[in-house]
Amino acid sequence: MNDTAFQFHFDDQQISAEPGQTVAAALIAGGHLWWRRTRVHDRPRGLFCGIGVCFDCLVTINDRPNRRACLVEAQPGDQVSTQLGAGRAHLAN
């Protein structure tokens, strides 16, 4: 592994990433195949198109939901969390 590798948080785990690696790539390399559950049927979702088109790989990064994991480059110390539904449960009232 490259010596500039760094770590970010995924829920309660540490994930290793290299500079320039996307969140999706790092999560898959770390053995994770999904990081979101769908709004209607609560099904797991991870990488599908991998090029920013399909919006399937949405994930919450640093409290911002609906980030495309396939496009966002991982940063040291990022807090990535599994997105449940629309990822904005706090707005519903």
Binding site: R39, N66, G85, A86, R88, A89, L91, A92, N93
Partner: peptide
């Protein structure tokens, strides 16, 4: 007329 579409949200 233009209409904007947001990302999906819970019932807000």
């Amino acid at each position: 007329g233009f209409i904007l579409v947001t990302e999906p949200l819970p019932r807000v």
